[in-house]
Simulated scan of single mutants.
Amino acid sequence: MLFARRTETDEPVVAMLASAIRRDISFGALRPDEKLKIDGLRQRYGGSSHSMRETLRMLVSEGMVEAINQRGFRVTSATEDDLADILLMRLEVEKLGLARAMAHGGVAWEAAVIAAHHQMMRAETALQNAPDDASVLTWDEACRGYTLTLVSACGSPRLIEMTGRFYNQSRRFRLARLREGRIDLHSRQLRHEALKAAVLERNTQDALLHLEEDIRADLRG
């Protein structure tokens, strides 16, 4: 056998480790191009050598970590070219997903969009009232949930998976902009109200325009 199958026992540990490392990459605790050594990561996050290697392989597949020519792993770079490429992919993937979801989604999908939007707005209000690490994390997770809900009725599991993958890759850029005060949360709320209204009215053209405007504003301003 060339590849060992991950056991059911490993899966919760790997998911937990991946979530913690993914979060620290997004928040800048693990810096772009930083080398990731198995022993050091185990001391910081726990887990066995095997589970940590599985975790890093998962993060490589997501584009959060790079394998270095059989010499280990490092955090992926975060250059202007990286940002431009991630922006391109988010626009292409999310607009396709939303268009398909608007064509195929029913009342249950509309209700899910309304609920996810409400959760995101509550998190945004909490962030404005108390901008600490916990509220930033809650807000970012709510934003991710809303993004995935918008495409959830597209009928393509791979398209949904790609939406989550490229959103994760964009997180450190948008969170850096948030820390620098370069995301206008009031303007963002207005954009999302307009996006929600267009979605519920099934106005695909306006919805896609609002979605593109929001993604660009979050990542480029």
Rank of each mutant, 00 (worst) to 15 (best):
D24W: 00
M64W: 05
A153C: 06
A111W: 07
L88H: 15
A123T: 02
E34Y: 01
S156G: 08
Q119E: 14
A78Y: 06
E193I: 05
A99S: 10
L56V: 01
R90G: 03
L83N: 05
L137F: 11
R220L: 15
E141K: 14
E80V: 08
A123K: 04
E34A: 06
D39H: 12
A78G: 10
S48P: 04
E193F: 08
A84F: 04
T125D: 14
R182W: 08
R53C: 04
D82P: 01
K95A: 09
L178Q: 07
L211K: 04
A116M: 00
P12L: 05
K37F: 14
C143H: 15
Y167N: 05
M102V: 06
R177A: 06
E34K: 02
G97F: 08
E212K: 06
W109D: 05
R23I: 01
S61Q: 11
K196Q: 13
E201L: 11
S77I: 11
D24N: 00
L175G: 06
T163K: 12
H117F: 12
L148Y: 08
E66R: 10
R42A: 00
L59T: 00
T149P: 01
R165P: 08
F173K: 01
A197T: 10
A198P: 03
T147Q: 07
E180A: 14
Q119R: 15
P12E: 04
L127M: 10
R23F: 06
V107Q: 13
H118Q: 15
L127Q: 05
M102C: 03
R31K: 15
I183V: 09
E94L: 13
A4L: 13
A153K: 02
F166D: 09
A126Q: 11
L87Q: 00
Q205R: 15
R5H: 12
N69S: 13
R165C: 11
W139K: 10
T163A: 15
R6A: 14
M89F: 09
E8H: 08
R23L: 08
V93A: 02
A101D: 03
I160C: 09
Q189R: 15
A112T: 06
A103M: 10
Q189C: 11
N168K: 12
T7M: 01
C143I: 13
S51D: 10
R220E: 15
R100H: 10
L30V: 03
A4G: 12
A15H: 13
L148V: 07
R202H: 12
R22E: 14
R216K: 12
V107Y: 13
L178M: 09
A78L: 08
G97D: 09
H192C: 05
G47L: 00
Y45R: 00
R57I: 09
V93M: 01
L185Y: 06
C154W: 02
E62S: 06
E34W: 02
S51P: 02
A198E: 02
L159P: 07
D140F: 07
A217W: 05
